[in-house]
């Protein structure tokens, strides 16, 4: 069984990789398997967790469940063309709830806490710790403050990027570009380790070429 499984895994691995050369039947086969099996997987998991788990197992415990079920059934009204428009109700519910939920969540975790953490002294390693920073930290602190400020200027919509404002926005773009370049470079290592894992599997588990 174990051996067979390794062969299957190797077959699928190589099939996906073959896409890098060009689209081909082997890749199409793997893709078809992937789509069919994974769609089935999620369908089953959601069925047991959300339908069976909530309605059969915890029967009647929470009347709220039935509100959800009604909304779900309204969703299925799409299948009946004449009253398909009812399915907009659960959709409207989800949109409203998402909007309300996110509005305040994002506001507290990103606006409030991010703005709060910009309140930082330049010459200290932290708030209330006296003048104790090295040149390294001081430059770093100033860069963070300037970068955040100019970055926000870049995103400002109400003013044309011209004159002094435009120049500040340019500095903002400069910071964003450094950010993007740096995070790109930093991520390379973790992406490579994924490949190392697969190559390790192919040469080690599958071909047995790695002696250790």
């Amino acid at each position: 069984m174990e051996h067979f499984a390794i062969w299957i895994a190797a077959f699928l691995t190589l099939g996906i990789v073959s896409f890098l050369y060009k689209d081909n039947a082997w890749y199409k086969l793997c893709e078809a398997i992937f789509v069919g099996i994974s769609a089935g997987y999620w369908f089953v998991v959601l069925f047991w967790d959300n339908l069976h788990g909530k309605f059969w197992m915890g029967k009647g415990e929470d009347p709220m469940l039935y509100v959800g079920a009604i909304l779900g059934i309204l969703m299925l009204m799409r299948l009946i063309p004449k009253i398909g428009w009812i399915s907009r109700w659960p959709l409207a519910f989800i949109v409203g709830a998402t909007a309300g939920f996110y509005l305040i969540n994002y506001f507290s975790s990103d606006v409030m806490s991010q703005v709060g953490s910009t309140v930082m002294p330049f010459f200290s390693t932290g708030y209330g710790s006296g003048v104790n920073a090295s040149l390294y930290d001081i430059i770093g602190n100033i860069v963070v403050a300037v970068g955040t400020f100019t970055g926000l200027v870049y995103f400002y919509f109400s003013k044309e990027h011209k004159g002094a404002f435009g120049a500040t926005a340019k500095v903002g773009i400069f910071f964003l570009m450094v950010t993007f370049g740096a995070s790109f470079g930093y991520t390379v290592m973790s992406r490579m380790s994924l490949l190392i894992g697969r190559v390790d599997f192919l040469f080690g588990d599958f071909l047995g070429m790695i002696v250790q």
Binding site: L20, Y21, M192, L195, I196, V199, D200, F203, M209, I210
Partner: peptide
């Protein structure tokens, strides 16, 4: 780009082998 892919593969596989 396939040449690039090949080089990446070599660069990862060679030190493993």
């Amino acid at each position: 780009r396939r040449i690039i892919f090949l080089f990446i593969f070599l660069a990862v596989a060679a030190p493993i082998l």
